[in-house]
Design a protein around this nucleic acid. Structure first.
Length: 844
DNA sequence: AGCACGCCGACT
DNA sequence: GTCGGCGTGCTC
């Protein structure tokens, strides 16, 4: 983008016939936080022409009544052509850009690559407190005499408004208790009884705290002396006042004020004593803005020493990074990748550069945060979705502005790629194979790892992708020279890799050796571990008690009434719950079909395992870690803490237990049902099985002692399991690559998944087949579907999918344009109004 | 995405 | 006769 777009244009001047002067018309193309394709052009009125810049927010009216905070994308003097009135910009919100030029370049890339709009990216990128939207405010018209011809509802509403002063639409809907109070409001508006206005409210409020200052009366030496004299009889007040002076005026570095809380605490005075001094006009209080960000750190920064293998890897990375290719760091579990990162980060921070450290959503554990805080103290900040909005705004500005106290290292989940970095020196993507880097819904459906690579290119910052189990895409890129590859094959601190055992569930069942859900192998291992005071982690990728219930007489299975899935039985809550929409039904105990009372549980989830274990090992403390036990705010941290402190002997969990946790007393890891992973109907299921089993196995092993992993399966001869046992990633990769090539799957081909949804099944079928036909004209055999996905209905929306396979070296941009063209053609056909169609590029 | 406008069925 | 359901089109 040319540089002059930053500046208001001074040409071409033209003569204004109205005001008889030379005038300059300046226009701004703005991005609205809406999923609309094009930008909208507004006129920049003269009073804003000097201050407007690309990347600042402005308030504009959009449509008949709504106001939005839009982002200035382009400034120019070309009057837009068209038969519409150009509206003026109403207000300018920022003095300096809050979105950088580099970010806009990234946004444009996202729009092209992920087939979305700038509005959608704008929405995803900015903390919501920075995206204002007007709210309709309704108030009582004070110049209105209460008439007689009002209905009961109208009168009640008016009285409410009179009492409250102002209300928004949601309040009124709640008050009236109907779905829409719009008709009542319309009548009242016609009768001139109410006033309606649109207000844009700033959501972000800086946090303030009371600070204590010297009162204006006491600013001279003599006044202070006099005051001290006058306080002789009030000894507590004198103590407080003297303390205040010693901390501010008489301090080595004098300050004007002191925070009230700190003053009271450190002088050990009470509220009342301070109050007295304020009443006497000796001190005064004032609200001062303070930040919400935590700059505290407990310990002095510690930097570790690396072992030989790590030093070699660090050296290799250093060499490779100079080539500005992304580096894939393939290091087996516990090989000490984090220490290498710390060294690399340290180097960048010393240069005054910023570092982005991406972790999967779930990987933002207290363990990692503690480690980074210990290494980098208050230079490290955290950004993820659990942060409240005010904090996110502050991190945004902290990243953007070079302040006295600012974070140089940002640890963040996927949305951290959108932060406004000034001077990015390095990007680390940890656990790059993790699926949670991909955003499903809403658009932009981006993969943070891939966005990070592009972000690195824009900033000329090196990118490191680290993992023990590379995604096939990344490994392929490394093998074909798009990425550089660095491998670490030794475990840190000489912890040996765990011994892997494959336990045959079918054989054990036949011999009647199963102890509940455990094979004799796993049962023995757990017993031994408990006897040695060691801990156990069990993995089952399914929460709840039983995935479904079934009538033993007729085979009936309870299903969700809104979705096409069976209800999962949650024993603890005594309910059957849909894991797709949350629909909950209480347990009737009777078959919905034949009314038989013989209802059986089928399969097992974490809850059932927890219960069975408590019966099998009554002495052991068993805990469960899944979505249900970690939903509460500190639930996850509490479990980790308890496990670390050995208050838990056996931890049962879903995927959560596989992520980046390091415990040093776990000797046994059990995978309860590997079949479920292997048989998952997806072309990536073997890749994922390998990743999950390897990752969870990595939790086993202690210093000087080999850990054990038991994998329970009915397919003990399955090749993937043997590759896991041998830790033979390469063999699995090569075998799978041949298949991927043959069936035109990634990484040889790129996939675009098109999802079509409609509440009406016939209309969905029609639209989907029309779209597929249209796409086949361009892509022929590379179109799959339309087909129902595994779950064909979610929350009463039926859905179908069409898959497009694009050749890797084909003109991607052009193909995507063709796809989106076909989509909009289908959408604009009559009767296709309530269709939802979206494209998911590189779906997971 | 919202929201207004416009056209057809089930109600006072 | 009207209320309100949804299908359609537009927003600088």
């Amino acid at each position: 983008m040319p540089k002059d777009l930053f500046l208001p244009h001074s040409k071409p001047d033209k003569f204004c016939e109205v005001c008889n002067t030379m005038s300059t018309d300046l226009y701004a193309d703005v991005i609205l936080p809406l999923p609309l394709g094009d930008q909208f052009t507004y006129r920049v009125p003269p009073e804003f022409q000097a201050s407007i810049k690309v990347g600042i927010r402005v308030i504009v009216q959009f449509g008949a009544r709504k106001f939005f905070s839009a982002l200035v994308y382009r400034l120019h003097t070309n009057m837009p052509v068209g038969s519409f009135d150009i509206k003026d910009i109403d207000a300018v919100l920022d003095q300096e850009p809050i979105v950088t030029q580099a970010q806009l370049i990234l946004w444009e890339w996202l729009v092209d690559y992920y087939c979305c709009t700038l509005g959608e990216v704008y929405k995803a990128a900015l903390p919501s407190a920075l995206k204002l939207e007007s709210q309709t405010k309704i108030s009582f018209n004070p110049h209105y005499d209460m008439p007689v011809d009002l209905s009961g509802e109208e009168e009640a509403l008016l009285l409410m408004l009179q009492g409250h002063g102002q209300a928004n639409i949601q309040d009124i809907n709640r008050f009236i208790g109907k779905r829409s109070a719009f008709s009542t409001l319309k009548i009242l508006l016609e009768k001139n009884a109410i006033l309606v206005e649109e207000k844009v409210e700033e959501n972000y409020r800086p946090k303030t705290a009371p600070f204590i200052f010297l009162h204006a009366n006491v600013l001279t030496e003599s006044a202070i002396a006099q005051t001290l004299e006058s306080l002789k009889k009030a000894r507590k007040q004198l103590t407080l006042f003297e303390f205040f002076l010693s901390e501010t005026l008489y301090h080595a570095e004098p300050k004007a004020s002191m925070e009230k809380k700190e003053l009271l605490e450190r002088s050990q005075s009470g509220e009342g004593i301070l109050r007295a001094l304020i009443d006497k006009n000796i001190l005064r209080t004032e609200e001062i803005e303070i930040g919400r960000l935590d700059f505290s750190h407990d310990q002095e920064p510690v930097i570790f020493d690396l072992n030989e293998a790590q030093e070699v890897a660090l050296e290799q990375i250093g060499q490779q990074l100079r080539g500005l290719k992304p580096v894939l760091l393939h290091g087996i579990t516990s090989s000490g990748k984090t220490e290498i990162y710390i060294k690399l980060i340290e180097e960048q921070l010393a240069k005054g550069n910023q570092v982005l450290y991406l972790v999967p959503e779930i990987g933002l554990t207290t363990q990692l945060i503690t480690r980074m805080k210990r290494a980098f103290g208050d230079r490290a900040g955290i950004y993820h979705s659990k942060f409240n909005d005010a904090e996110r705004v502050e991190i945004w500005f902290n990243t953007l502005h070079d302040k006295e106290q600012s974070f140089q290292l940002v640890l963040g989940a996927r949305s951290a790629v959108f932060l406004p970095f000034r001077k990015l020196g390095l990007i680390i993507v940890d656990e790059e194979h993790e699926n949670s880097y991909k955003q499903f819904d809403p658009a932009p459906r981006y993969h943070a790892r891939d966005v990070a690579v592009v972000l690195g290119q824009i900033h000329h910052a090196p990118v490191i992708l680290g993992t023990a189990t590379p995604s096939f895409e990344s490994y392929f890129n490394a093998k074909t020279g798009k990425y550089a590859l660095v491998e670490l094959t030794e475990r840190y601190k000489n912890i040996s890799l765990p011994e892997m055992v494959i336990a045959d569930v079918r054989e054990a069942t036949r011999r009647k050796q199963m102890k509940s859900l455990l094979t004799p192998e796993l049962f023995e291992q757990i017993n031994t571990a408990l006897a040695n005071d060691e801990q156990v982690i069990l993995f089952q990728n399914r929460r709840g008690f039983a995935p479904y219930l079934q009538c033993a007489t007729c085979g009936w299975i309870p299903k969700c009434r809104h979705c096409d899935v069976s209800l999962t039985y949650h024993k603890h809550r005594g309910a059957m719950i849909c894991h797709y929409c949350g629909h909950t039904e209480s347990l009737s105990g009777k078959c919905g079909e034949c009314h038989s009372e013989e209802i059986r549980t089928r399969g097992f989830g974490t809850e059932k395992i927890e219960e069975e274990l408590s019966l099998l090992f009554p002495e052991a403390k068993v805990a469960r870690m899944d979505l249900d036990t970690t939903r509460a705010k500190k639930g996850y941290e509490r479990l980790i803490y308890q496990f670390e402190n050995k208050q838990i002997d056996i931890l049962v969990g879903t995927q959560m237990v596989t992520k980046g946790l390091d415990f040093d007393n776990v000797s046994v890891v059990g995978i309860l049902n590997a079949d479920q992973l292997l048989n998952y109907p997806d072309f990536r299921s073997y890749e994922r099985s390998f990743q999950l089993i390897t990752q969870v196995s990595g939790r086993a092993g202690r210093k000087n002692k080999q850990g054990r992993v038991v994998v329970q399966t009915t397919q003990p001869k399955h090749p993937v399991l043997h590759e896991v046992v041998a830790n033979n990633f390469t063999q699995l990769f090569n075998r799978q690559m041949a298949e991927r090539k043959l069936f035109k799957y990634p990484p040889y081909f790129r996939l675009v998944k098109i999802v079509i949804k409609h509440k009406n099944q016939e209309r969905l079928n029609l639209a989907a087949s029309q779209l597929a036909t249209l796409l086949r004209k361009n892509f022929g055999f590379n179109i799959l579907g339309p087909e129902y996905p595994v779950i064909s209905r979610i929350q009463n929306w039926f859905q179908k999918e069409i898959w497009v396979k694009l050749e890797r070296d084909s003109k991607l941009g052009q193909s995507k344009k063709q796809i989106m063209g076909a989509v909009s053609q289908i959408k604009s056909m009559p009767n296709h109004g309530n269709l939802i169609i979206h494209a998911d590029v590189d779906p997971m």
